[in-house]
Design a binder for these strands. Structure first.
Lengths: 250, 250
DNA sequence: AGAATAGTGTCTGTTAGACACTATTAG
DNA sequence: CTAATAGTGTCTAACAGACACTATTCT
């Protein structure tokens, strides 16, 4: 039997019935707080519960494309703003009983976006909102979505250290102080303004000057800040390391 | 309609037919070279080609369990030696046309093992072997498996830096020189023996002394080395960073 | 004026890496 | 003996972090 004959006689139904979904952990920063996008489920299972946006992967559709589509559907976002959103695969979750309907393996994606407008609830979602991650503890999520959000959060915190991810949370042009706010918000730590400033400018390819400055100083005074855009580095060297936390090492 | 009624009327067949497989990128070190486990496919598609060990996820089987099972089946390995093999999820691959049979999403796993015996070809595999990764360029792999191996390699190199992964490639008791050989082999760089020694001992929780020494000195002379076992650290702080390579940063 | 902030200067303790050296063992 | 290796000492340049200071802008 050659390859052609084999494929002609091949029956996909002979293999176990497993469905594949994508779930999107979308982070943005608004009001100096990290937010995650949640939708309220309109249908069972977990009807009424809050959950990550996501859904079944369509035939002929790439996994990343499915993640972008689900994100766009649930947020009503498209065009240029959507293009500035960065997607990357997080991990896959496949516990046999994680969904009561059937065996479902979910490929989770991370999305990082500058401050986005309020989501307009899409077709599948009863409602959609940006929830501050500090409010996560007091909200029950559907499926194993809490675990997925936690994994995504740790990934985001870690990637701030050695990639220019932080520049994805700010606009095209930004000040060093805005960039510092991203780090402080995601890490949940205040950072030393002066040292951070010097460090950011010393890492090759992290930011490059636009030559412009802000129109005005800060709301409570201070000089106008120089504006920068994201540089061409894909990895930061040396990295911007989080202040050491002995507890989390072991 | 409540949750029970919904689930009773639920038809899994209504959803797209997608199959889920696991593929395992298993690394070991033999003869001071990094090797990856490959099997020769006995059946179409890609019959005769070399590929990663893997297969369909069974119902009621966890993804990690599937990876361990496939690895065990293809290597004939079980019991205590298998327990010393470390598994972790790498990433998922789901290009619509990556498999000619049907839509298949593969969840790839990484496995790290101390020097293992020759694999005994399992049921599905025509043959199995440990291939030095230096020989990968001159071998065509099935599906998108070359890409998966490359991703796994980069993950392994990177995780050596900030986790105690290297201790998974050596025996229960090991010398600092053996540990250094792991780093040199995986990174493909010679390291400075003296500085490496001091660095390893200075990282909290990386290794702990057993109080023993080797029976003999090296084959070409030298004092007996002290023996260590893996410590309890799960993250290395400070990390053992690779020598900076400017080229790869951009 | 007074307060807040952008950005720079300087000092200190820690670390990576280069180099050198001693002690121990195989052949 | 000689060669090779384990492990340590020491120096230097780079870096993180603390602190201080100037310049600029808002209220």
């Amino acid at each position: 039997m050659n390859e052609q004959e084999f494929l002609a006689g091949y029956d996909p139904r002979a293999y176990p019935a497993v469905a594949v979904t994508v779930d999107v952990v979308a982070f943005t920063i608004r009001d100096a707080a990290l937010h995650v996008l949640l939708i309220q489920r309109a249908y069972p299972p977990f009807a009424g519960f809050w959950a990550l946006p996501g859904g079944f992967v369509r035939p002929e559709e790439d996994l990343t494309a499915a993640a972008r589509r689900e994100f766009a559907e649930e947020t009503g976002l498209g065009g240029e703003p959507l293009r500035r959103v960065h997607f990357e695969q997080l991990a896959s979750y496949g516990e046999p009983d994680r969904d009561p309907r059937m065996r479902i393996v979910s490929v989770a994606y991370l999305a990082f976006a500058p401050d986005l407008p309020e989501p307009s609830a899409g077709t599948d979602a009863g409602d959609a909102e940006w929830l501050p991650i500090t409010a996560l503890t007091s909200r029950e999520l559907a499926f194993d979505h809490r675990r997925i959000v936690e994994d995504g959060l740790e990934r985001a915190r870690s990637k701030l250290e050695y990639t220019p991810l932080a520049t994805r949370f700010v606009g095209e042009e930004f000040t060093i102080a805005e960039l510092r706010a991203v780090y402080e918000t995601v890490w949940g730590h205040p950072l030393h303004a002066g040292n951070f400033h010097r460090k950011v400018l010393s890492v090759p390819g992290l930011v490059e000057s636009t030559g412009n400055t802000t129109e005005h100083g800060g709301p409570r005074g201070g000089p106008r800040a120089k504006l920068y855009r994201a540089g061409d580095a894909r990895l930061l060297h040396p990295a911007l390391l989080r202040p050491a936390r002995e507890e989390t090492v072991r």
